[in-house]
């Protein structure tokens, strides 16, 4: 990687929330680089600002100051509309509670992000089927979320996140709602996306096993980042 520019460059990022006339600082001067093909785990106590940071990187929240560049695009200066267009092709989001659309089948859920692309109906089908094959749920594609286990739903959600071939994948406690076995499956799958497909993943987690899968662990505490090499865990 060496000379290559990082895929995510965060510089002097500040974010605070207002509650009435009280100001609650959440992120305090965050500076961070993430390289392409990296699997980064973001850890830290509850309320330390992990979700907030992840949302900022994913372009669904606005920072107070500082910049975030993703693949050379300074997303902190984009408008709401530009951000929506940017997210459609650059970010795959994996949620703790899967957040599949319950009235759509697994296949339709995976196809959803492709509706915002110029792909034909046939190409959409091919891409969605391919993504479902990657998560090993090709045979369940006509099932509705309610007919799938938590782990299977999360795999569908991962297929939905990767299907538009985004620049980065962000995951907010993707194993937080899963049993041990399912959690391991999800982590294996994410590891495979990084190693086999060269994806970049930024994952918020509480789970030490999850963190262990990652290449780099960053600790967020009271809005400040501390870096530990993996072997210090």
């Amino acid at each position: 990687m060496g000379s290559k520019a990082p895929i995510v460059e965060i510089r002097n990022l500040y974010k605070s929330y207002h509650r009435g006339n009280q100001i609650l600082p959440v992120l305090n001067d965050i500076t961070l680089d993430i390289d392409e093909g990296e699997f980064l785990a973001l850890m830290g106590p509850s309320g330390s600002g992990k979700t907030t940071l992840l949302n900022l990187i994913a372009g669904i929240d606005k920072a107070d100051s500082g910049t975030i560049k993703v693949s050379g695009v300074e997303i902190t200066s984009l408008s709401e509309t530009e951000l929506a267009l940017w997210r459609a092709t650059n970010v795959g989001f994996i949620f703790q509670f899967y957040n599949l659309i319950p009235v759509l089948t697994a296949f339709e859920n995976v196809e959803l992000p492709l509706l915002l692309t110029s792909l034909s109906r046939k190409e959409r089908r091919e891409h969605a089927e391919m993504a479902l094959r990657v998560v090993n749920l090709y045979d369940r594609m006509e099932h509705y979320p309610g007919q799938l286990s938590g782990g299977q739903q999360q795999r569908v959600a991962i297929a939905r996140a990767v299907v538009p071939d985004p620049t980065i994948l962000v995951a907010d406690e993707p194993t937080g709602d899963l049993d041990r076995v399912s959690a391991m499956e999800i982590l294996d799958l994410m590891e495979r996306l990084v190693h086999g497909f060269g994806k970049t993943i930024i994952m918020v987690t509480h789970d030490p096993r999850a963190a262990k899968m990652a290449h780099i662990i960053k600790h967020l505490d009271k809005g400040v980042l501390n870096v530990y090499p993996q072997n210090h865990l």
Binding site: A84, L85, R87, V91, N99, L116, R160
Partner: peptide
């Protein structure tokens, strides 16, 4: 509302 947020996250307008 939660679903609409998911749609928006994916880039729907």
């Amino acid at each position: 509302f939660g679903e609409y947020a998911v749609f928006k996250t994916m880039g729907f307008r």
